[in-house]
Design a binder for these strands. Sequence first.
DNA 1: CGGGATCCGTTACGATACTG
DNA 2: CAGTATCGTAACGGATCCCG
Lengths: 221, 221
Amino acid sequence: MAKPRTYKLLCPIARALDRIGDRWTLLILRDLHAGPARFSELQRGLTGIAANLLTERLGKLVEDGLAEKQNGAHGVSLYALTDQGQRTRDILFDLALFGGMFAPGGEVIDPGNMRSIAITLAAACERVASPSLTMTAQFVIDREPMILAVTNGKAVMTIGSNEPPEITLTTSYEALLAVSEGEIGMDELIANQATLIEHKAGYAQEFGQMMSQAIATLNDR
Amino acid sequence: MAKPRTYKLLCPIARALDRIGDRWTLLILRDLHAGPARFSELQRGLTGIAANLLTERLGKLVEDGLAEKQNGAHGVSLYALTDQGQRTRDILFDLALFGGMFAPGGEVIDPGNMRSIAITLAAACERVASPSLTMTAQFVIDREPMILAVTNGKAVMTIGSNEPPEITLTTSYEALLAVSEGEIGMDELIANQATLIEHKAGYAQEFGQMMSQAIATLNDR
DNA sequence: CGGGATCCGTTACGATACTG
DNA sequence: CAGTATCGTAACGGATCCCG
């Protein structure tokens, strides 16, 4: 009788899962937390999602008021989180920290773009940042720039380069993975496989310390 | 090729969802957070889950080290969270608070047992409890007892009656729903549709205040 | 009766092809 | 580029049966 598969329970957890519990939906939200994205950008980042599923999931997110379709420049349309959609942030933070318990599978898969790790890095940094910390750091990973804005201990990572950073870390996805797997340390990364530029003096040490601790929280097995 | 539907991505959120992202799994964990449960108890609480799915999900949770099968008294077997499984707590807390944004569906469905609301009540109480608060409260909802243990601001709700409470609130599921929907206030609940017993003097006011605020956070639309 | 296993119709997903 | 359409396959839902 054309009934969708919903839990139809009064429990708020079930109500939440009826909106964001479907396959792919939380990963779409994950990517949208790194800033507005176009359809093809999302599709590229979600290795292997079928176009029709992405269409359907985005449609449901819009319908439920968690995302909206914006008209960007040059007639391109962008999907962005609404205020309500932003409130999935804590859930994704927790999932990222919980998922660190499990060893990743075998082969390294090209993630398509860096959106998939943006919120994870933000979660890990926020976990270890002191409540008073404020800094703007730029990451350039495989030539893709992203900005980590830490404001009074709250961390947000956004794809692009909107704000002038106090520090820039340039490295590769694979090298960063090696760090997150504990194969090399943050110090070795900076020494051998990355470039760290201080645009303002005195941020390098604090940044390095934060990142070391942050990445350690992603791998507490 | 017998490949299960996993994301196979390095992102820890994807790794997390590969363990707990399947349909029903998070709801099973929700119920297990209220204490060890037998198969039939879980099945009754998860209105409509097919037995084979519950079997499969439990098997995967055990395989992934998130739950374990215990041998209880009289040869009954119990499923319980492992330490790793306990770490889904924050995720469920956030889901409960996020899900409060959405209005529940039409019909009131008998939840089968009270496990489904245990972690939600704990989440709401912890959200509003001061970091120094410690108290033990008993809820008896539709004759089912559960214990809310708040320790230094951390809240855990467990089915049963293991600890002597300082206060007992006896009421019905429907009345509690009416409060959570804002139809009646906590004070009206206590006055008309519930019994509040202080086993130690002086806890009633603090308890009532906490519950009012807690339930308000479950309904911030 | 509790704790599942088996079977089968229905629904959702995944891959590819196609269109404005 | 941003989706729609189609179709084979995998997962789910409900029922029935089995076993201690």
